[in-house]
Design a protein around this nucleic acid. Structure first.
Lengths: 174, 174
DNA sequence: TTATTTACGCTACCGCTGTAGCGTAAAGGC
DNA sequence: GCCTTTACGCTACAGCGGTAGCGTAAATAA
């Protein structure tokens, strides 16, 4: 069933994924799908969770470089994912608490990775202000979603670098 | 028609707003609604735009205070608005370019106001880094949407203050 | 006054998400 | 061997967003 759903999702995005067609393609009754997943949104979340691969990332000794790499990777992942998919998942999460939980754990992994590196950078004295890491993470990752979902501006790799530079301050010597 | 739509929107949110019911309540055929607005999303955008009041804000001589007030006002507006409404509009904007344009102009006013104050703060030498105002605005406003739509954390007034402090640095003397 | 445009109401329809209810085959406990 | 549970298929349906086509009343132009 998940395989059929994956094909449908790839073919037509979130809207194009029809439960009827998934059922037909999987050779299964529609009611069976609804017995396993209580809504289309939860099916898609389960599908994405099952397909998700970890971000390959091992921390080096240079927090600035690590942070740039992480934020760039998140930005790249967001630009690859169809925008409607992200937006529809956010909308579904706003409606259903169960979906909200699943979606949250979907992003949480990346959020935690960024938090760890930010904390390390702060310990190394690389951060300008005196704010909690959580807020800095929001200011690194939040603008990506803001641009994607609200303003519609592009998420260039340059933009990710600029975000990091803004939080860490300009690099000094070399 | 907009009045009927407003009642429906207030009663049941974006989902609860049914075009059929709006038509019935307004004493109008459904096709008439679709002749004026090509989709449900565009109807809602038009409705919100017509209901929208400007943020009362006149700049003082203290950019820090202005920025805090602006970001807090935006955060307050977002917490008052049902989350599903914001999310559904974002989703509709991701699908339809026409909706995207309307939604964009909806937020653009506030975005521009913040940009102006940030530029003024930067001229006054209040900003720590050396980044363009546009990026700073993203780092002030983006986290609000990120929390609202992705992580689900609350948008307290304290949080707005923290965001400003993170961008401007801690206040110095008094 | 007459002809034409414009806007509207109405019905019927498509495809969609999600639900209710019924029949049935397989699995597990005794 | 028997009986209960579990899972499934199937049909039918409600409500939704959105569309096509037809008839018609009102405004406008000549």
């Amino acid at each position: 069933m998940l395989a059929a759903a994956a094909e449908e999702l790839q073919r037509g995005g979130y809207d194009g994924l029809s439960i009827d067609r998934v059922a037909e393609r999987a050779g299964v009754a529609k009611t069976t799908l609804y017995r396993r997943w209580p809504s289309k949104a939860e099916l898609v979340v389960a599908l994405i969770t099952s397909l998700r691969e970890e971000i390959p990332f091992e921390p080096s000794d240079d927090p600035r470089r690590d942070l740039t790499a992480l934020v760039s990777a998140i930005a790249a992942g967001l630009t690859e994912t169809p925008t409607t998919l992200v937006a529809d998942l956010a909308a579904a999460a706003a409606r259903e608490p169960r979906v909200s939980e699943s979606v949250r754990t979907l992003w949480a992994e990346r959020h935690r990775a960024v938090t760890a590196v930010v904390a390390k950078a702060q310990e190394a004295g690389l951060v300008l202000g005196h704010v909690s890491p959580a807020v800095l993470v929001d200011q690194l990752v939040g603008p990506l979603y803001y641009r994607l979902l609200v303003t519609g501006e592009p998420l260039s790799p340059d933009y990710a670098r600029t975000l990091v530079r803004s939080v860490l301050g300009p690099e000094e010597s070399r």
